[in-house]
Amino acid sequence: MEIIISNSSKIPIYEQIKEQIKGKIVTNELKAGTLLPSIRNLAKDLRCSVITTKNAYEELEKEGYVTMIPSKGIYVAEINKELVKEEQLNKIENFVDKAVTMAKMNGIEEKVIIEMIHILYEEDSENEKYSRS
């Protein structure tokens, strides 16, 4: 499992961990029932504090992504993928909405925005290729 943490980011570290694990669960990279690293193990590997990883896992549990079984471990929970996807789509719609509003206000054509999204997508997949090789 890969988790990339940026110490210079404005996003709190526990949230970075949470979001990345969540992403891996949603994309099925981590399947239901998979045993996740313990709070302390993860803290050591990510070189962060125990409270930080504990927070991340607790939030994930609250949102139903993982189940913590005391003295056994932390497992990926069974989730309703459709529901989660819909939730994420809603969030994305919000962002796009903001972007479009701003574009309209400044008289930027639809074309330009779509082009922009296109480029961003490509950049991302190129980065991925790069990191894999």
């Binding site: 570290i13 070189r47 504090s49 409270i51």
Partner: peptide, 23 residues
Amino acid sequence: LEHIADYITFINQGKILLSKTKD
């Protein structure tokens, strides 16, 4: 400490100024 500490206790001139979780 920014990396591994869970709690931070800060002392100055013999007095504790704060003692809280680092996060």
